[in-house]
Design a protein around this nucleic acid. Structure first.
Lengths: 153, 153
DNA sequence: TATCTTCTCAACTAATCCAGTCGAGAAGAT
DNA sequence: ATCTTCTCGACTGGATTAGTTGAGAAGATA
């Protein structure tokens, strides 16, 4: 249940691109890497994956760089994570809806499906624009309000 | 965001133990492995971890085996996962409540905290007894009711 | 006490994934 | 031409995953 460096970097870069959206100009990889403290080469590999997934648009040469392919408000965190990591939830590489167990654990797949659904409830409802502009939606706010949500567990 | 074989096996074994709770007798590793189709040696390693975490009680020798250390209704899936995998959510090995980012991604930790909170909402509210006895709680039922929850994404 | 059963624990391994680095090249701008 | 910036594949060292193996400890039974 861990978020990898790659996934984290991808989201941070996308948020940074969201913040630069209003300039209408592409942002250089060097700048993105510098702002977020991410190794530049690694980040550029990730950005290329985001381009192949249709999330980012790129331009080469002087005045080149990266920008979001769609309005920032329409790029969710789930979109970015799926682009670099594949399905949001998987049990041994299998999607939860395709599992089947025997014996007493027969109903366990429902728990994994519920788990995925709860992930989606958060990740599909927060866009990179929301994060960049500090307008987090209720799906996030409601869950971070409680002090308990911030405690280690 | 993947559930490892180890985590999956741990939960399935715990559910199987929940199902055997009413007998009051320990269940052999061989039986658990057979019921769930899990390599026995690997499973016994996992069960030893569950014992060290206080979730399972063991007895050696003839008539030995494994049983839950607490009533099955008080052992949640979250308990089992934490026992074998550590914290439910971590970004590059760091708990979401301890992250700090600069630049446009400053508010991103809140998203990760919300994510963890949504995981907990499911995993801390379903016990291994619920699964074994097919009495899934609202936290699960509500999320699996929608057809959409079962679709690949 | 001897024996049988069952868990215990550390060590080992093969394969995969993670988190990068590196370098030659392609595409644009001037 | 030349400079800039992205592109893509190959490579690497270390960690993690998913196990296996084997000697041993602890109980039960006779």
């Amino acid at each position: 249940m861990r978020i990898t460096a790659k996934a984290d970097y991808a989201v941070r870069a996308a948020v940074e691109l969201a913040a630069a959206e209003k300039t209408g100009r592409p942002v250089k990889g060097e700048y993105l890497a510098g702002q977020q403290g991410i190794p530049q080469n690694f980040l550029e590999n990730i950005l290329t994956e985001l381009r192949r997934a249709g999330i980012v648009r790129t331009r080469r040469g002087a005045d080149g760089g990266y920008q979001l392919a769609r309005p920032a408000a329409e790029v969710t965190v789930a979109d970015v994570l799926r682009a670099v990591e594949g399905p949001l939830a998987a049990v041994q590489g299998v999607r939860p809806d395709q599992l089947a167990y025997g014996g007493a654990a027969e109903r366990l797949p429902e728990v994994w499906v519920a788990l995925r659904s709860s992930l989606r409830e958060v990740l599909e409802h927060v866009s990179v624009a929301d994060i960049a502009r500090n307008r987090l939606p209720a799906a996030v706010k409601d869950r971070t309000r409680s002090k308990d949500a911030w405690k280690a567990h």
